[in-house]
Design a protein around this nucleic acid. Structure first.
Lengths: 113, 113
DNA sequence: CAGTTAATTAACTTATAGGTTTAATATAGG
DNA sequence: CCTATATTAAACCTATAAGTTAATTAACTG
């Protein structure tokens, strides 16, 4: 699998995204990260492994703790990928706005819904 | 599943991203979209269904063709989600740049690699 | 050293993703 | 009406994702 696919599939899980959101506020250990979730520590540990393989987090070691921290690179890669579509959706938005403006003006033949 | 998860997992497949890239250049039918891929038409049709369920494409009908077109909304949602992390990775980048600048300056204790 | 805490590994279950082939449906066109 | 074309549906296979519990490893602590 290519790295972008690996990143996106790591991100395609609400638990993992919540973990990343937590880590955006600073480092945290595995059990700290697991605490808010209604699942076993082992399950969270696996989620972390998925994030780690995608390069979205890295783990240090401090005694028996493995402090995790967010890594920016893969997120930036997603952003770069999105870049190609930004033009597209702006165009699309422009069209919608133009249409809305048209309606605002009170043209005669606007649809009723 | 939440919509963002559905979108991201739809995007986490290179075939589906290639389809979206193709559709960024305009509408295309199912068989046109399938043509470049080394898999059955049925498989591509399923990929399209995944994209459609995520709202990333929509299908029209023209005789026996189902022209597909790219829909911007879910991609924008991904972009919005990324927004929260942009600050983070810019900070991170700044730190790296500052460090690089420091090295440039020729400080004494820079690492050799 | 014994016990506790932190985390991972192993073995297992269940559901789903992604592909296949074959069959069905719908439309155009002679 | 018959046939070719476009697409979807159905049934199936296999690999993997996401969770579980139980066992293992590693480090601190009294």
């Amino acid at each position: 699998m290519d790295t972008l696919s690996i990143t996106l599939s790591a991100l395609a899980d609400p638990t993992r995204r919540a973990i990343l959101a937590r880590l955006a506020n600073g480092e945290a250990s595995v059990s700290e990260l697991a605490e808010p979730f209604d699942m076993s520590l082992v399950a969270v540990s696996k989620h972390l492994k998925v994030l780690e393989k995608a390069g979205l987090i890295s783990k240090g070691r401090e005694a028996q703790w493995r402090p995790c921290r967010l890594e920016p690179k893969p997120l930036r890669q997603v952003d770069d990928w999105l870049e190609s579509y930004r033009q597209f959706w702006n165009d699309n938005l422009d069209r919608l706005e133009a249409y809305a403006a048209l309606l605002q003006k009170g043209g005669k033949n606007e649809p009723s819904n």
